[in-house]
Design a protein around this nucleic acid. Structure first.
Length: 436
DNA sequence: TCTGGGGTCCTAGGACCC
DNA sequence: TCTGGGGTCCTAGGACCC
C-alpha cells in the first residue's frame, strides 16, 4: 500500500535575463536599452558608440536579451541576423562565461546560506527543497504558507545582496509546479501555487509551459486539438497512450494534473563532456581538409583538457557532424580503457570519422567523451590496474548490414563514388616535427 | 541573410551471453 | 536444423533543456 508521502515544499529559483543582467551590472548606462548577448566576438562599434546588432555579420544566435529587447521580438535562440532585422539599434555584447559563472557561484552560495538542499539546473537556475527548513511551514497571520513565502522572499533578498541581481521564485509542492510558477511573474516575481490552485492557475496555460513538452510534443498536441494544460488533463489515459506511447502518455497526464514525485537531487555525476564548433563558413571535407584536421585535433585536445581538469576519464568517444543542409549525424566507439588523453581521443574519433560519408560541406564538428568514471591517480585509469589479470580487449563487433547501409550508402553514381569516404579516410593531421 | 554550445534522457535494434 | 527468453552492452538518433 503506497502511503501518501508527506507533502513537500519546493522552490524553483530562476535568475532574470541572467547574462544580460550581468552585463548591465558593469554597464549601468545601458539600463533601459534593448541589449542582446550573443555572437562570437564584439561586433565593430561605430566611433565610440556601442556595438549594434545591425553591424553584426556571421553566424550565431541570441543567448539572452533584456526585457526591452524582448519587447521588440528578440528572444533566446533566435538567429542574430533575424534579430537585427527586428531590432537593428539593439546593443550586442559578446558572452563572457567566466563572469557569468562567477555570479552563478555567488547566487547559489547566497541561497545555500538559508537552504542547503539545492539541485543545480545550470548556470542560472536551481531547485531548492524547503521541506525541512525551520519555519518554512509555519502559518503567518492568516496565511498558512506565510512562513514559506517569507523564506522565499529572504532567498531573493540574499541573492540580490550577494549579486545585485533579481530573480524569480516559484513555490509549490513539487518541481514541476515550482518551475511553471517561477515563470508566471517575471521579473522579480514570487509566486506560490499549491495543489488546490492547479485548476485555476495551471490549467489555463498552454501545454508548452510543461517542462519536458517541447516544440514537437506541443505541435502534436495542438494538431490533436489539445491546447491548454487543462485540455490535456481531460484526456483519457488510453487516448494519450495511443498517441504518445504508454510511458510518455502516462507522464503527460500526471504532469497536466500537477503531479510530480521527482526528488531534489543535490549531487550528481557528469555523464559526458563534449566540445563542438560551428564554422564561420561551411567547410568542404576535401578542399578544407587541412583546416578541418586542425580543428578536429583541437576539439579532441580540449575535451581531454576538460576531462583531466575535472578528474574524469571516459570510454566512449564520439563525433558529431552537421552538414550544410543542417542534417546531423553522430558516430561513437567504445574503447577498452577509459582515457582523458587528447591523442587517444583523437585516434578513436578518427576511426568514427571513417564511418561517415563525407560528400557534403560541413557546418559543425563536435567531439564527445561519455561513459565517464573518476580518474584514479595520474593517467592511471581504474580499469588499467583493477582489472585482473589482463585488460580485456573490446569485443570486435562487426557492423550489421543495416548499420553498414546507413554508414556508407551504396554509391549510386560514379560521381558519388569519387566523393566517397575512401578518398579521405580521415583528416590526417600529423603533428608537426618537434622544433628541437 | 535562418538555426550556438553544452548537456541529459529515452528509444530501438542488434550483438552477445547464459 | 530450428527455436526459447532475459539481461546487458553498444550504437544512432531525437527530443528537450539551459
Amino acid at each position: 500500500m503506497a502511503d501518501a508521502l508527506p507533502p513537500r515544499l519546493i522552490a524553483h529559483l530562476d535568475m532574470d535575463a541572467f547574462y544580460a543582467s550581468v552585463e548591465l551590472l558593469r554597464r549601468p548606462e545601458l539600463r533601459g536599452l534593448p541589449v542582446v548577448v550573443g555572437g562570437r566576438r564584439a561586433s565593430p562599434a561605430a566611433g565610440d558608440d556601442w556595438p549594434r546588432l545591425r553591424d553584426y555579420t556571421g553566424r550565431g544566435v541570441v543567448t539572452t536579451s533584456t526585457y526591452e529587447a524582448r519587447a521588440l521580438g528578440v528572444h533566446s535562440g533566435m538567429g542574430l541576423m533575424r534579430s537585427a532585422a527586428l531590432a537593428p539599434q539593439a546593443i550586442l555584447l559578446p558572452a563572457d562565461f567566466d563572469e557569468y559563472r562567477r555570479l552563478s557561484r555567488l547566487f547559489k552560495a547566497a541561497v545555500a546560506e538559508l537552504a542547503p538542499a539545492i539541485e543545480d539546473r545550470g548556470i542560472d537556475e536551481i531547485y531548492i527543497d524547503l521541506s525541512d527548513v525551520p519555519g518554512a511551514r509555519e502559518a503567518v497571520g492568516h496565511d498558512p504558507l506565510g512562513g514559506a513565502r517569507a523564506l522565499a522572499q529572504e532567498l531573493k533578498n540574499n541573492v540580490r545582496r550577494a549579486t545585485g541581481l533579481s530573480c524569480s521564485v516559484g513555490l509549490a509542492p513539487n518541481k514541476l509546479l515550482a518551475k511553471i510558477c517561477s515563470d508566471l511573474d517575471k521579473p522579480d516575481g514570487l509566486t506560490v501555487v499549491m495543489a488546490e490552485d492547479v485548476a485555476s492557475r495551471i490549467w489555463p496555460l498552454p501545454v508548452r509551459r510543461i517542462h519536458g513538452v517541447g516544440p514537437k510534443a506541443s505541435a502534436r498536441l495542438e494538431s490533436l486539438g489539445v491546447h491548454t494544460i487543462g485540455e490535456l488533463a481531460r484526456q483519457s489515459p488510453a487516448w494519450l497512450s495511443d498517441h504518445f506511447g504508454a510511458h510518455h502518455g502516462e507522464w503527460l497526464l500526471a504532469a497536466a494534473h500537477g503531479q510530480d514525485d521527482r526528488p531534489v537531487v543535490t549531487e550528481s555525476e557528469p555523464v559526458s563532456m563534449s566540445r563542438e564548433t560551428t564554422f564561420e563558413r561551411d567547410l568542404h571535407p576535401r578542399t578544407d581538409r587541412a583546416l578541418l584536421g586542425r580543428i578536429f585535433t583541437d576539439l579532441c585536445e580540449r575535451v581531454g583538457d576538460d576531462l583531466r581538469r575535472k578528474g574524469y576519464v571516459g570510454r566512449t568517444i564520439g563525433i558529431k557532424l552537421r552538414f550544410d543542409d543542417f542534417r546531423t549525424v553522430t558516430r561513437d566507439h567504445t574503447v577498452a580503457l577509459p582515457t582523458a588523453d587528447g591523442q587517444l581521443i583523437r585516434a578513436a574519433a578518427g576511426q568514427c570519422l571513417k564511418r561517415i560519408n563525407l560528400s557534403r560541406r560541413l557546418r559543425l564538428l563536435g567531439v564527445r567523451v561519455g561513459n565517464l568514471s573518476h580518474a584514479v591517480g595520474i593517467d592511471t585509469p581504474p580499469t588499467a590496474t583493477a582489472r585482473a589479470p589482463m585488460p580485456e580487449p573490446a569485443p570486435i563487433r562487426r557492423p550489421t548490414a543495416a548499420a553498414q547501409r546507413k554508414a556508407a550508402p551504396a554509391p549510386v553514381e560514379a560521381g558519388a563514388q569519387g566523393q566517397s569516404l575512401s578518398l579521405f579516410p580521415e583528416w590526417d593531421d600529423p603533428a608537426p616535427p618537434a622544433p628541437d
